[in-house]
Amino acid sequence: MAALRRVPELYRGDLGGGITAKWIEGPREALRREVLDSLSFLIAEIRNEAPEEALELLENARQLDPYNEAIYRDLMRMQARLGHHANIERTLHLLTTSLSDLGQRPAPDTLRLAEALRQRDNPLESRQAN
């Protein structure tokens, strides 16, 4: 666990960030995936006892993999759990913007999750909508 906790501080960006040669693409992507796997494992281990730290790690993961909808859903769940309700809408907006770069939109499940978290966090709003 101690080694995993050092991953976010040690990984400072893409391997050979200034190098554009084809040969580095494989190692670069392999390292990025290793870092994402390490973050995922660490998040799963600490999410209950250190939710603020898990939220920060989820943000790191989002920056490494900006098109991964599962990360955004986990972010929204953790934000709701921590009472960061306004951030849920911002996270959904970030996802929508990222996916628009690819000509895609968030999945219906993601939109339903955001709405459910919003309603759960503001029951008065959900009653007024009905």
Rank of each mutant, 00 (worst) to 15 (best):
M1V: 06
M1S: 09
A2D: 13
L4K: 00
R5M: 13
R5L: 14
R5V: 01
R6A: 15
P8A: 09
E9D: 14
L10C: 10
R12S: 11
R12I: 02
D14K: 11
D14F: 01
D14E: 15
L15F: 12
G17R: 09
G18W: 12
G18S: 09
G18H: 07
I19G: 01
T20N: 11
T20L: 13
T20M: 12
T20V: 06
A21Y: 03
K22I: 02
I24Y: 06
I24N: 05
P27N: 11
E29I: 00
E29S: 12
E29P: 00
A30W: 07
L31K: 07
R32C: 02
V35R: 05
V35S: 05
L36S: 12
D37K: 07
D37E: 13
F41R: 15
I43L: 08
A44S: 14
I46C: 08
I46T: 02
R47M: 06
R47L: 03
N48W: 06
E49A: 10
E49H: 12
A50Y: 08
P51R: 08
P51Y: 05
E52S: 09
E53C: 04
L55N: 05
E56M: 04
L57T: 01
L58D: 06
L58I: 09
E59C: 02
E59V: 02
E59D: 11
E59L: 06
A61Q: 11
A61I: 00
R62I: 05
Y72E: 07
R73H: 02
R73P: 02
D74K: 10
M76H: 07
M76T: 01
R77K: 14
Q79F: 05
Q79N: 04
Q79K: 11
A80F: 15
R81C: 03
R81S: 14
G83I: 01
G83H: 10
H84C: 01
H84Q: 13
E89F: 04
E89N: 09
T91M: 03
T91R: 04
L92T: 01
L92C: 08
L94S: 10
L94N: 08
L95K: 06
T96P: 08
T96V: 01
T97F: 07
L99P: 02
L99C: 03
D101M: 11
D101H: 11
L102F: 07
Q104D: 09
A107Y: 04
A107L: 10
A107E: 13
D109V: 00
T110N: 05
T110M: 08
L111T: 04
L111F: 01
A116M: 13
A116L: 13
A116H: 10
R118G: 11
R118Q: 15
D121Y: 00
N122G: 08
N122I: 00
N122Y: 09
L124A: 15
L124W: 12
Q128Y: 07
N130G: 14
N130A: 14
